[in-house]
């Protein structure tokens, strides 16, 4: 489902050249639950952003579901991010002025789903993450764990087959973290492909397989 071949990412800041990824090759099959681990600065987020089509690699080939990502247009990539991949960030990235309901609605609006479908799906998702009663609240009125659950609901809005989570529990206390992991496990059992970055061994233990990164390279 996800195939990376010799992916590199080079950052140039002034005269400094930094190789965040140095030839990463990996395959992730449909329905897998993967953890990516590694020390800070090893390139985990960089890799996740490339897999999530939020960033483009400097070199290498990324094939998603049989499509060469490099060959997709801006709007085709937007469609991939909209329908195929749900992305959960460490810092939630919810729109501050919108209610939780509106935040979850947004990906469906971009997809052009009708009002009836949206309403049904949002209610479903809010119930699934246990925050239906918070539908009219703004993110700032919610705890970190609650915000992450809303972010998760938003990522699932268009029912994407792949869920990517960059340290989803990194900003949460352990109890909230467990709640999130319980939901991720459910989603995986329902057939989704899940890729997650974490520093925490306990969190990683929920997954089937761990990919370890060091200095921008995959360790075997």
């Amino acid at each position: 489902m996800i195939e990376l071949q010799g992916i590199t990412k080079v950052y140039k800041t002034g005269s400094q050249i930094l190789e965040a990824l140095r030839g990463v090759s990996l395959k992730i099959g449909r329905g897998e639950f993967i953890s990516i681990m590694g020390p800070s600065g090893s390139g985990k987020s960089t890799l996740m952003n490339i897999i999530g089509c939020l960033d483009t690699p400097t070199a290498g080939e990324y094939v998603l579901d049989g499509d060469r990502v490099a060959g997709l247009s801006f709007d085709q990539l937007a469609a991939v991010r909209n329908r195929k991949i749900g992305f959960v960030f460490q810092n939630f990235n919810l729109l501050p002025y919108a209610t939780t309901w509106e935040n979850i609605e947004l990906p469906m609006l971009f997809d052009g789903k009708n009002a009836h479908k949206r309403k049904k799906r949002i209610s479903e998702l809010l119930n699934a993450v246990g925050l239906y009663d918070w539908r009219d609240h703004r993110p700032s009125e919610l705890s970190g764990g609650q915000q992450q659950r809303i972010a998760l609901a938003r990522a699932l809005a268009n029912d994407p087959p792949i869920l990517l989570a960059d340290e989803p529990t990194g900003n949460l206390d352990s109890r909230s973290g467990e709640e999130i992991m319980a939901i991720l496990t459910e989603l995986w059992k329902a057939g989704r492909t899940i890729v997650m970055v974490t520093h925490n061994d306990r969190i990683a233990s929920y997954s089937q397989r761990i990919i370890r990164l060091l200095d921008g390279m995959v360790q075997d």
Partner: peptide
């Protein structure tokens, strides 16, 4: 940042 978030969840350029 808001634009970034919207792009991340699939907003097209026109939007």
């Amino acid at each position: 940042k808001e634009i970034g978030i919207k792009l991340a969840i699939g907003a097209r350029r026109r939007v």
